[in-house]
């Protein structure tokens, strides 16, 4: 047995779980949207616009975008923690990542509810 002093709680369990739940949401969205688009390729602007004007597509895409932001944050943070040893640089890159992901989410909302 490895003797280890354990203090505190949930060492990243919430992030780990969130990453998996958001992954499932995005996988489901990908399959549904993929099938819809493959079976009816949007050939004209009207069809394309009407597709994204549907309530369920807007909500599903919003949930996808929010899931992506959360999922990518956990993943990007894992990568940064593993490879960037310098604390200041890592913190700066984490801030850049958060800003980037927040921009994506805001941009997606802007596109969906224009």
């Amino acid at each position: 047995m490895v003797k280890r002093l354990v203090v505190g709680a949930h060492y990243g369990l919430r992030d780990w779980l969130a990453q998996r739940i958001t992954a499932l949401i995005m996988a489901l969205y990908s399959i549904v949207i993929g099938v819809v688009l493959i079976t009816g390729v949007p050939v004209s602007y009207a069809v394309w616009k009407d597709f994204f004007a549907q309530g369920w597509v807007r909500i599903a895409t919003l949930i996808f975008a929010a899931s992506l932001a959360w999922h990518a944050w956990v993943g990007a943070r894992d990568i940064l923690m593993d490879y960037i040893k310098h604390d200041g640089l890592r913190l700066a890159l984490e801030v850049v990542t958060v800003l980037l992901l927040a921009t994506y989410l805001g941009w997606a909302i802007e596109i969906l509810w224009r």
Binding site: S44, Y45, L68, G75, I79, T97, L100, W107, I111, R114
Partner: peptide
């Protein structure tokens, strides 16, 4: 890991740009 990083940057930004332009107007599409 590599594919995940690429999907965040640049692919997500690139796809959002294309989605934005294609939905903005007929000319954009």
């Amino acid at each position: 890991r590599i594919s995940g990083a690429l999907l965040v940057m640049p692919f997500a930004a690139w796809l959002l740009y294309m989605l934005d332009a294609s939905l903005a107007s007929e000319a954009g599409f």
